[in-house]
Design a protein around this nucleic acid. Structure first.
Length: 658
RNA sequence: GGCGGAAUAGCUCAGUUGGCUAGAGCACACGGUUCAUACCCGUGGUGUCAUGGGUUCAAAUCCCGUUUCCGCUACCA
């Protein structure tokens, strides 16, 4: 027996910090459409997705929820899986980074890299900030001080493990240059090269001691493995990879042997760096081949700006499915997503697509064809061979469409591939107009022609519906069931006339897609929005923010800091910077120059005259080449918006804050 | 600030290596049709191809400047 070609595709594993919105769901659906098509093309496919469950953020979230981290991720992971299932994604493996075999294997990988010297235990010298419990590279330090709190950083206070990126940098650069298809879209390649690879890679810190919820370094208590090392490994541990070569077997098959290297890592454009730099280097260190392609897809954005729970404009897949049905939602996300730029999704747009494409073009076509077959031919169309020139164009279209779809799918142009299928349906509608079956139906002498026309239509629809399987599997099944036929295989689409002549179609065609009224949909969207805001806000309606707690300080520590009210008497933009404003601040009888990163929130003009709270005894430092002699205090919300802190009653410049 | 990308019809976008009157879908208008989910088919655009120059027989397409937007990155007391 001939060995089938394999195809291994992975999505990024979803982070279990909360319910995934439609943007996350898009990736799973996109991946699903690609693998379904590959299966149709005869590939032996492996499709892996899953959840990424470790890290400090989850440790904090679970504390807030009052449950253990494991209980927390069990819940969210289950939720994610059920949404993937709801969307009809046909994954072969749903991996969780809390799976025991994954954890064990990650530990072994870490140990192996350590033993061969690619991971080494290092010390930070003058680069560890004890109060912040954070490490910084020399380039991150500002005047040798912690960039977060500005305090002295201690030498070699903490031990940590590092991955030697620099050792493999040249090989990676070489690989990227000689494999132009490796990073997609190609424009992202420049970003990786120019920002990271060419300036020189810093070794990556791959262990943490500041929290517990992670995979422990098994030979050094207290250290947990950096989440990205953990998460990226899923692509091989999910295949049963074993460092020692004793790969796991599934049904007697060594999946790792069979499927690695992956054909495609499908990920969001935001995590391209991890997949095109750290991951390849890990693989090189393990002496494994690199994945053939990493595709950083664009984002699906909600119309009115960033999705946010507090704004109530987060769109979830299950809400959409309730309203439109699974296949309509699959169609929206696949069709609206352009190849390289971010796509926009709005309620209006979805209704437009539903009514125009799904209900009018496709649903109505199937419906009218079946109706006529019943009305004029007792439900059975036969190819009576009464051809006319107009038939040729339809047949040509039906035969060329599969080729075009294959062509588009080979380039991962999923949206374009769907458009090709719909072009065939549009051609069918036109054919009905050209042949006017309702007129043929009035003339008994034209019955054979009529039968041939409807046969041609049903055959064309069979081909089109079969091609839709990768994108809208349920719809394909529904249409073919109504036509009482089987899905046409891709390699059987080189011939027109595969539909069995005289097959009886269903008597009562089911409406495939109901048209919806925009206003009604918007009203329901508003309900969802309100429910979401109520849920997000709880009693207070206002979102609260929890930040990472810093270690306790003494009163003496506090007294070291001197705060005073300052009046801004002049302010200008720091020209070379995007975010900085340079203010002259009157504090008592002296004037200090202070640089602050608030240009996005305050103009230089509106700063003048404000009374603000200033930390005055901070050691001066240069920012973008400009001297700054203190710090203006600001409040920051969850999205990074800043607001200056000002005295609640009128106070003179220089008043001490205590 | 560094690097990169984008700017085309009311809206969303196509436009390969420069080459015939610059395209598609949606929306809108009109006409046709009635098998069908008030659906389908046809017809309809004077678009400064962001802007100013340049190269060329010929530029949306190549080069330079300008403006605006975006991405990555740095800074963000």
């Amino acid at each position: 027996m001939e060995k089938k070609k394999t195809y291994y595709l992975t999505t990024a594993i979803a982070y279990t910090s909360g319910k995934p919105h439609i943007g996350n769901t898009y990736e799973a659906v996109l991946a699903d459409s690609i693998v379904r098509f590959k299966r149709q093309q005869g590939y032996d496919v492996r499709f892996q997705t899953g959840t990424d469950e470790h890290g400090q953020k989850i440790e904090i979230k679970s504390e807030e929820a009052g449950v253990t981290p494991k209980e927390f991720v069990d819940g969210v992971s289950g939720q994610i899986k059920s949404i993937w299932d709801l969307m009809n994604t046909s994954y072969d493996k749903f991996i969780r980074t809390t799976d025991e075999d994954h954890e064990r294997q990650v530990q072994k990988i870490f140990r192996k890299l350590y033993e061969q010297g690619d991971i080494y235990k290092g010390n930070y010298e003058g680069m560890y900030c004890t109060p912040c419990e954070s490490f910084f590279t020399p380039s991150q330090l500002v005047d040798g001080k912690c960039p977060d709190c500005g305090r002295e950083c201690q030498p070699a206070k903490e031990e940590a493990y590092f991955l030697r990126l620099s050792k493999y940098a040249d090989r990676l650069i070489e690989h990227i240059n000689t494999h132009p298809e490796f990073i997609q879209p190609e424009s992202r390649k420049n970003e990786m090269m120019n920002n990271f690879l060419l300036p020189g890679l810093q070794d990556l810190c791959v262990s943490r001691t500041s929290f517990k919820w992670g995979i422990p370094v098994d030979f050094d208590a207290g250290h947990v493995i950096y989440v990205w090392i953990d998460a990226l490994s899923n692509y091989i541990t999910g295949l049963g990879y074993d460092v020692d070569g004793n790969n796991g077997k599934e049904d007697g098959t060594d999946l790792f042997q069979k499927f690695w290297p992956a054909d495609l890592h499908l990920i969001g454009k935001d995590i391209l760096r991890f997949h095109t730099i750290y991951w390849p280097i890990m693989l090189m260190a393990l002496d494994l081949p690199l994945p053939k392609q990493v595709f950083g897809h664009p984002w699906l954005l909600q119309g009115e700006g960033k999705m946010s729970k507090s704004k109530g404009n987060v769109i979830y897949a299950d809400d959409l499915v309730d309203m439109f049905g699974v296949d309509a939602v699959r169609y929206f996300v696949l069709h609206e997503m352009p190849f390289e730029n971010d796509g926009v999704i709005t309620w209006e747009l979805m209704v437009e697509r539903l009514n125009s494409d799904l209900a009018n073009t496709l649903g109505n076509l199937v419906n009218r064809t079946i109706s006529m077959t019943n009305k004029y031919l007792e439900g059975a169309a036969r190819d009576m061979g009464v051809a006319e020139p107009v038939d040729e164009d339809l047949k040509a279209k039906a035969l060329e469409t599969p080729k075009k779809v294959i062509e588009k799918m080979d380039k991962l142009r999923v949206a374009d591939a769907i458009t090709e299928v719909f072009a065939l349906f549009k051609r069918c509608n036109k054919y009905i107009d050209e042949t006017e079956p309702w007129i043929l139906g009035k003339d008994p002498a034209k019955k054979d022609r009529l039968s041939t026309v409807l046969y041609n239509l049903i055959e064309s629809i069979t081909i089109g519906a079969s091609l839709l399987e990768a994108f809208m599997p349920d719809t394909t099944a529904k249409i073919l069931a109504q036509l009482n036929t089987q899905r046409r295989e891709l390699d059987a689409m080189d011939r027109f006339g595969g539909y069995v002549s005289g097959t009886k179609v269903t008597e009562k065609p089911e409406i495939l897609f109901m048209r919806l009224d925009v206003q009604e949909v918007l009203a329901r969207a508003e309900e969802i929005r309100e429910a979401q805001m109520a849920a997000a806000g709880g009693v207070s309606q206002e979102p609260v923010i929890d930040i990472e707690a810093k270690p306790e300080i003494t009163f003496d520590d506090f007294m070291k800091m001197q705060f005073q009210v300052g009046e801004i008497i002049a302010c200008e933009e720091v020209k070379k910077s995007k975010k900085l404003l340079c203010s002259q601040v009157k504090i008592g009888s002296q004037v200090k120059q202070i640089v602050s990163g608030i240009k996005q929130y305050y103009s230089a003009e509106e700063m003048v005259g404000k009374k603000v709270m200033v930390l005055v005894n901070l050691k001066p430092a240069k920012l973008a080449g400009v001297l700054s002699e203190g710090m203006l205090l600001c409040a920051e919300d969850g999205e990074g918006n800043l607001a200056l802190v000002t005295p609640e009653k009128e106070m003179p410049a220089g008043a001490e804050i205590c």
